[in-house]
Design a protein around this nucleic acid. Structure first.
Length: 950
RNA sequence: GCAGGUGUACCCGAGUGGUCAAAGGGGUCGGGCUCAAGUUCCGAUGUGUAGAACUUCGCAGGUUCGAAUCCUGCCUCCUGCACCA
């Protein structure tokens, strides 16, 4: 058949669409399966990363449909965001138009790949039909006390009079005017995600996420148990509250360090000689962005504040410092410094000549010693200035200190999180307007539900000349009446972080045409039971999106909107796609593909090649459109799925895609060349059907485990090579073909659905494969025998080939015939007995010898040596292998037990074997029934005949 | 530094106690079909040998009759987090 890719693929895509085969509704008679990929930001055409993501999801959706599941498989667009705004500025249009155009492009690409989405549920988050529910949920959160408006520091440029996004700050300077950026407090909207910190962390133990994602989320939430300890300030009523995870080192505190921004600093130094030093340090720190503060801070610096604090347990007076390494936003912004057991404090103490007091020892009862590097692991308390602590270790020590702190009102056990509340507001246009009003009389007022959505105006001009958020200068948008008092009010002009949109979109898919609520509870409980059954996306969203979505699901659950608390039942993060890029070993740097075969731009050495993540900046991307035009969607999908398992990284290879195209061609060839079969049964029929049944069950298990590479290997490679072997062995029976292909074609559908439909229609399938439900293929009792016989034959040919090469070297004339001596009856009988004895509790060690001696054949004295040898190899084996009764497969054992006639099988297939070995003749007889050629009689054993060549 | 992962033949990659010199794919080499090419089919691809033996699954030890697989230590590379108290 001519493989007319374009015709076949467009034909079936049209059929699927016209017959709405992928539309689903609630159906309680079937188990549901919710398969979802992270929806894309529509930036234009689909790229290879998308293709990989969706090919995995589509294969699973199609597989689960075949398994009889009611599959929800939707697609939509995460279409709010800055790029659309920037594109609009560039083109002088509106982000809305840019977005609509891009969505149309990517959707065309997706349809061309043949993905089986239920398009009736699709939506884009930038439409009022979607974002009005963002607003509705926001107000519900507000009413539930989860929304907070408070001041937070942002990057601010004085010259441009505007907030800058992190990406717009380069080297701490404004990207536009070059002025240094400062931190400025501004009123911002927050979602109180920290309320759910414990649940978000603890539930990780019970969900099916990859370990690295769990680790990242645990890291991000960063819960640490410790103590809050109050250090009273000498000569002042205020106290310094410090957080520590190491209360067991409290007796080693020799100073206290505050972050330079700590509000107490100013109080403490006001009017003193220390004020100037502190101001310098604070200004230096405040100039730095968060990024620099964390990543570029090399030198630990501090200034004394000239005051002292009191260690609440020991009563010792210790000096107070401000230090640039103390982070204001973590804990309380104050640290009790224990230079004896904290490396940073040690370095700091050395630099400023502060005392060092070790209070932990490695061995109970030993003195604590000053050392560098310090002992910062757990130790035995010692040198404590109060009774009852020395000798305590680890958690006991911590608990004891916390207990006394609490009893004396000087502190308490506490928990700290790294996780912060979600800063939701953005000073951007292309996002969901925050549905809040500012009224002079009533303050902040939520927009009433019946007035939603607060729509983004379309009459807004975008140009590079304008700065700030166009909403702030749009009077029609800005001015309104207060719903409470009727007086004049201004709308909030900040919009929501676009991660908000993607935090619940999977809930909307269940009920995406609902006009009265975000989603109906009963509907969503059906689809979301046990979470989304398979969620597939990139690892880059491990923390942000996945954490936000988990938070959202718990929050809406607590609002009574849904039942589940965890949105994702199983998460699969697909690996990176790599392609070759020029690489300099010296500089450890990858360069743009323009540099192939050139020299390193920085060190001038010749460039090599290395696989690197596909990226625009390297130019090593591969366009899916070009590949689909050239090879077809099926081939691209096959390449993607066969190239690597979903989680593994994957290298693009031009050779490999060509070879997958060949594989497609071979499948077609195998199919076509079997269409004119007539009824001509052959003994190999049983074998190929047994193989089919075995493969089918292995395939099903692999697919259920999302081991797509393994699944595709069985469906597209193993099945084909079995079919080719069948043909080589003379198989050409129409009935066998019908059974084989009827079972095989559906297996092809998940990865290569178009060709599967084409085949299916040609063999007279009534419905489409996409509508088919397949049953388990039951194996037959004698499958194992058919498989084992053929395996025997193939093994025989393999070893004969090997031996033939050796034999040729020992022969003066060219080899022309093969003589195979099968094991004598007594060896088979011996093996058969050993097998059946093994299934009883026979003690071979104790009774083996006696058993052999009791056999009739043992009376033949000339055989005794060989008998013992055979017995040995059956039950004991040698140094390398255990006895054969332990290593034979079930099939092999059943062949032996059933007195399988090796000679007969070989002679019946002599012609085929001869051809495979390129010899004129193959003859087989039992040892003793003919001449012992090349002394092979002795080495013959059951299933392992003596092979000789003449 | 902490956490998660990784290391297998020329390359990619499967393999979790013996049936393992180790699936499958790519590459390379040889052969069939063909005037030729090949969207084709067959075979070879650690050394070696009338089927032995030997060496090999990051390195070094250990457990075991037996280790790619289990244990201990070390190294490598990747990813994430980080002066986080």
């Amino acid at each position: 058949m001519e493989y007319d890719i374009q015709r076949i693929e467009s034909h079936w895509q049209k059929q699927w669409k016209e017959n709405k085969v992928f539309s689903v509704d609630i159906d309680h008679s079937k188990p549901k399966f919710y398969c979802l990929e992270m929806f894309p930001y529509p930036s234009g055409n689909m790229h290879m990363g998308h293709v990989r993501n969706y090919s995995i999801g589509d294969a699973m959706a199609r597989f689960q449909r075949l398994m009889g599941k009611n599959v929800l498989y939707p697609m939509g667009y995460d279409s709010f965001g800055m790029p659309a705004e920037n594109a609009a500025k560039k083109e002088g249009g509106h982000p809305h138009n840019v977005t609509e155009r891009n969505i149309a492009m990517i959707r065309t690409d997706q349809e061309r790949m043949g993905y089986s989405y239920d398009w009736s549920r699709t939506f884009a988050t930038s439409t009022p039909e979607y974002y009005r529910w963002n607003q509705e949920i926001f107000i519900k959160f507000y009413e539930a006390g989860l929304v907070e408006r408070r001041f937070a520091p942002v990057n601010w440029c004085n010259d441009c009079d505007t907030v800058l996004a992190n990406e717009q700050v380069k080297n701490n300077r404004c990207w536009r005017c070059g002025l240094e950026v400062v931190q400025k407090d501004m009123a911002q909207w927050f979602l109180r995600m920290t309320e759910y910190a414990d649940e978000l962390l603890d539930d990780l133990d019970h969900i099916d996420f990859p370990e690295n994602v769990k680790a990242m989320q645990r890291n991000w939430i960063g819960r640490s148990h410790g103590a809050h300890i109050d250090f009273p300030i000498v000569g002042d009523d205020s106290v310094i509250g410090a957080f520590t995870t190491r209360p067991d080192t409290i007796f080693g505190v020799t100073f206290v360090t505050l972050s330079p921004e700590h509000p107490l600093c100013e109080l403490l130094v006001a009017g003193s000689e220390y004020e100037a030093g502190w101001r310098d340090l604070r200004d230096e720190c405040s100039k730095m962005s968060e990024f620099e503060r964390i990543n570029m801070l090399k030198e630990k610096k501090g200034v004394p504040l000239g005051r002292f604090a009191v260690n609440p347990l020991s009563g010792e007076k210790v000096p107070i410092y401000a230090g640039n390494f103390v982070v204001a936003s973590y804990g309380t912004g104050a640290v009790m410094a224990v230079p004896g057991h904290d490396q940073r404090d040690y370095d700091f103490a050395k630099k400023y000549g502060l005392p060092i007091k070790p209070v932990l020892s490695r061995i109970d009862g030993e003195e604590a010693i000053e050392e560098n590097p310090v002992l910062d692991s757990l130790g035995y308390m010692t040198n404590s200035s109060r009774e009852g602590f020395d000798g305590l270790f680890g958690d006991d020590a911590k608990a004891a200190v916390i207990e006394i702190l609490e009893s004396e009102g000087a502190g308490h056990g506490t928990v700290q999180y790294r996780l912060k509340d979600w800063l939701l507001s953005r000073q951007r246009f292309w996002g969901t307007p925050i549905p809040m009003l500012h009224c002079d009389n009533c303050g902040v007022v939520p927009v009433p539900s019946q007035n939603l959505p607060v729509e983004l105006p379309l009459d807004v001009k975008f140009s590079w000349g304008e700065s700030g958020n166009p909403l702030a200068s749009n009077d029609n948008f800005l001015f309104t009446d207060c719903p409470k008092c009727g007086g004049p009010a201004r709308r909030e002009t900040d919009t929501m972080d676009t991660f908000y949109d993607s935090s619940w979109y999977f809930l909307r898919y269940g009920d995406s045409n609902n006009k009265s609520t975000p989603f109906d509870r009963e509907v969503i409980d059906y689809w979301m039971e046990g979470g989304i059954d398979l969620y597939i996306g990139g690892i880059e969203h491990a923390v942000m999106h996945l954490l936000y979505a988990r938070f959202f699901t718990k929050a809406t659950r607590d609002l009574g909107m849904n039942t589940v608390g965890e949105p994702f039942g199983q998460l699969v993060c697909q690996g990176m796609l790599n392609a070759p890029a020029p690489f300099c070993i010296e500089c450890n740097t990858e360069y743009h593909i323009d540099n192939f075969d050139g020299e390193c731009p920085s060190c001038s050495k010749a460039l090599g090649t290395r696989q690197a993540k596909m990226s625009k900046s390297l130019g090593n991307t591969v366009s899916p459109g070009v590949m689909v035009d050239r090879y077809g969607a099926d081939t691209v999908r096959l390449f993607i799925l066969f190239g690597a398992n979903p989680e593994a990284g994957m290298d693009w290879s031009d050779n490999a895609i060509v070879s997958n195209a060949r594989q497609m061609q071979s499948l077609i060839e195998a199919f076509e060349s079997s269409q004119n079969f007539s009824n001509s049964p052959n003994q190999i029929d049983d074998w190929v059907l047994a193989r089919m049944r075995l493969n089918h069950s292995k395939w099903k298990i692999a697919m259920e485990n999302v081991s797509l590479r393994e699944g595709v290997m069985i469906s597209h490679f193993d099945m084909l090579s079995d079919w080719q072997w069948y043909r080589r062995r003379g198989g050409s029976d129409a009935n066998t073909r019908n059974i084989f292909f009827t079972n095989w074609i559906p297996m092809l559908a998940p990865a290569t659905p178009h060709i599967a439909e084409e085949f299916w229609s040609k063999i007279g399938g009534q419905e489409m494969v996409s509508e088919l439900i397949i049953r388990d293929v039951a194996t037959f009792d004698d499958d194992i025998t058919h498989l084992s016989k053929e395996t025997y034959l193939r093994n025989l040919i393999d070893s004969s080939r090997n031996i033939k090469g050796l034999a040729q070297r020992h022969s003066e004339t060219p080899i022309s015939s093969c003589i195979i001596q099968t094991a004598p009856d007594w060896k088979n009988a011996l093996a058969s007995s050993a097998i059946s004895l093994k299934s009883t509790d026979f003690d071979f060690k104790k009774n083996g010898q006696d058993y052999v001696k009791s056999l009739d054949i043992f009376s033949m004295t000339e055989l005794r040596g060989e008998i013992f040898q055979t017995w040995q190899s059956l039950i004991l084996g040698n140094k390398k292998n255990r006895g054969k009764i332990y290593t034979w497969s079930e099939g092999e054992k059943s062949l032996i037990s059933s007195k399988f006639d090796e000679t007969e099988l070989i002679n019946n297939n002599a012609e085929f074997i001869a051809k495979a070995l390129s010899v004129d003749s193959v003859t087989s007889y039992k040892v003793g029934d003919g001449d012992d050629i090349a002394g092979k009689a002795r080495v013959s054993s059951p299933l392992d005949p003596g092979i000789s060549f003449l």
